[in-house]
């Protein structure tokens, strides 16, 4: 499987259209799942994915297998494309980090929810707050990395995370009632 992927990537470097389509179809589910987390709906996710794959095919010669696997490389491209969309569509304002006590959310409620409902909940967050929450809580970025990605301060990144947690707590508690 891994060998297949390596061969397909080599063909893609030569601009082979069939190999490109093969690679796209092989990675569609993986990449679409990432785009769905950052997009507000599936149409935006499709738009992000299309642009991400075009960028990937155009820069596939720069992929260096010794520096990481192909999935990780593609994930970075999809996330970067997602953040570009968000930056184009929303203004990222600076905020001072919130020092208030962090809200507590009952795990059992999350366990009872299905994936689609959780995704819908996260999509209700303000755009920048949504992005920061997914970057931090789902994709494991640090505040420093988030600040660099979104051109904001670390404090602003922390503020957005705190805001996301507060909003999620309110919404989840509302579901419990």
């Amino acid at each position: 499987m891994e060998q297949d992927l390596t061969n397909i990537i080599l063909d893609c470097r030569e601009g082979n259209r069939k190999a490109q389509e093969q690679l796209y179809r092989q990675l569609y589910g993986f990449a679409m799942a990432i785009a769905m987390r950052y997009a507000v709906d599936e149409h935006e996710a499709a738009d992000i994915l299309g642009h991400a794959f075009v960028k990937m095919f155009r820069s596939i010669r720069s992929f260096d297998a010794s520096k990481g696997n192909f999935h990780g490389w593609l994930k970075r491209i999809v996330i970067n494309e997602s953040l570009d969309h968000i930056k184009q569509r929303s203004q990222l304002t600076s905020f001072a980090p919130d020092t208030a006590e962090e809200p507590r959310i009952d795990n059992s409620i999350i366990e009872q929810m299905d994936a689609a409902a959780i995704l819908a909940l996260i999509r209700q967050l303000p755009r920048a707050t949504h992005a920061v929450f997914v970057l931090f809580a789902i994709d494991g970025y640090t505040h420093k990395e988030i600040a660099g990605q979104l051109n904001i301060s670390e404090g602003t990144s922390k503020w957005h995370l705190s805001e996301a947690r507060k909003i999620l707590q309110q919404k989840i508690n509302a579901l419990k009632i």
Binding site: Y28, G29, M32, A33, M36, R37, E42, A45, A46, I110, M113, D114, A115, A116, I118, L119, I122, I138
Partner: peptide, 9 residues
Amino acid sequence: AKLEQVAVP
């Protein structure tokens, strides 16, 4: 973990 289970369109 739940988001990993999201069905892609």
